[in-house]
Design a protein around this nucleic acid. Structure first.
Length: 291
DNA sequence: AGGATACCCTGACCGC
DNA sequence: TGCGGTCAGGGTATCC
């Protein structure tokens, strides 16, 4: 599912197709995703010019130029199964038929945005955990969705000291603290499991017990695992495809995620990967080398 | 107020 | 083959 590296990969993949282009029209195939679409959504998109794409946590930001200074930003969250694809207009399949090239079902094409020049952006999301916002760019940071978000894990404000300060006094398991978007924004279940394993820290430990040296290691490993995934073109699970719909997309090899029962990949460890539910979600870890 | 839990949704998978 | 049950999970609402 799309976490920060996947969203960043989508951003980079879409940018050359979108930036500087004008939106000809937009079409909604249903009234809502996770939430209802913004009022007059399609009308407000039409005619706008797309400015340079950005990302905040797992949100893709599509700033739109307006006739005046009051530009709005299209915010896209891919949820669990959301995909953005670019297609030439004429490639459209009849609704309801399997799209062989991309493996997606057209009945889940919820939003179609026609660009000047003939290409279409398609938002396809079977589970509809995704959602979209259209908000004034000026006040985006103050919007409830963004106001409480913590620091970017790849940004300058993220550090061992930041983790120590945020986790001080917290008795919540460190796995859950890392998933809490108020502390660090953009980490999901997969990369939290991977980072804790790389750092050798047990996921059940109280967040407050993190030592200074462990915080250094954890902060470093979080950066490394995210940067590796971005460099690899984003990781992929099950239904994710590249934004252009191409097959043969890179399959990232996780060290512990979804590897219950397999040998711990850490050299010389000899442990076995366990699975435990924390906060209703699976944690994959090694009891031997994560302390 | 922080922490825990339920919920949204569909497709994949499994056992019968 | 079909059917029911389970699981996946980010963000949000709601509970204590």
């Amino acid at each position: 599912m799309p976490e920060l590296p996947e969203v960043e990969t989508v951003r980079r993949g879409l940018a050359p197709h979108l930036e500087g282009r004008r939106i000809e029209s937009a079409r909604l195939n249903r009234p809502d995703l996770r939430f209802p679409f913004p009022p007059r959504f399609a009308e407000r998109l039409a005619g706008r010019t797309i400015l340079p794409l950005a990302r905040r946590a797992k949100y893709l930001l599509v700033p739109l130029g307006g006739d005046d200074m009051n530009g709005e930003t299209l915010v896209i969250h891919l949820g669990m199964s959301g995909r953005l694809l670019i297609e030439a207009r004429e490639s459209r399949d009849p609704l309801g038929e399997f799209h062989h090239e991309t493996g997606r079902l057209p009945q889940h094409d919820h939003v179609e945005i026609a660009l000047e020049g003939g290409k279409r952006i398609i938002f396809n999301d079977p589970r509809r955990f995704g959602f979209m916002l259209l908000e004034p760019s000026e006040t985006l940071d103050a919007h409830p969705t963004f106001a409480g978000l913590g620091v970017e894990p790849l940004g300058n404000a993220f550090s061992a000291d930041h983790l120590l300060a945020r986790f001080a006094g917290r008795r919540t398991p460190i796995k859950l603290a890392l998933l809490d978007q108020r502390h660090v924004a953009g980490l999901g279940n997969i990369y939290v499991c991977e980072a804790l394993h790389r750092a050798g820290i047990a996921p059940a430990r109280a967040a407050a017990t993190l030592t200074a040296s462990e915080a250094e290691r954890l902060a470093a490993e979080i950066r490394v695992v995210l940067e590796e995934a971005i460099a690899a073109g984003g990781s992929t699970l099950k239904d994710y495809r590249h934004e252009d719909g191409s097959l043969g997309y890179f399959q990232h090899a996780f060290r512990v995620y979804d590897r219950e029962g397999e040998p711990c990949p850490k050299p010389g460890c000899g442990g076995t990967i366990s699975r435990r539910v924390q906060g209703g979600r699976s944690t994959f870890f090694c009891e031997e080398c994560q302390r």
